[in-house]
Amino acid sequence: MATAEAMEITGVRVYDPQGVTTEYPHDVLWDALREVEDPELCISIVDMGLIVAAKLGDDGVARIRLTYTAMGCPATEMIEGDIHARLMRVEGVRTVEVEVVWEPVWTKQRLTAEGRDALLVSGVAV
């Protein structure tokens, strides 16, 4: 298992007149995760701020830490299944390990600017 320090990628805070959002890294894993959508909102799980850390080890293990907006999220198995299916198509990924964490606590500040705009268009107040 990767160490906590090595996994700790939480994005960069962005400040604009509409509030605080977060930008997340671009690499082979993060970009693949951008193609996985929250099934309820049809917004990328990266734009939703659900991915806390993503790292591909030399052993071919893609280690993902994610959180959810709510502990009672009914779509957890679906999202984790979609993550697994998408990352297994990334070159060099032998297996995928997903760990659900509750820290950092999800807040709307974890949204990207794109995620915030997409939610507003969907009629969700953020």
Binding site: A70, M71, G72, C73, P74, W102
Partner: peptide, 10 residues
């Protein structure tokens, strides 16, 4: 209810 069951699940 969803919150409470989610907490139990965690």
């Amino acid at each position: 209810a969803q919150d409470e069951l989610g907490h139990a699940r965690a």
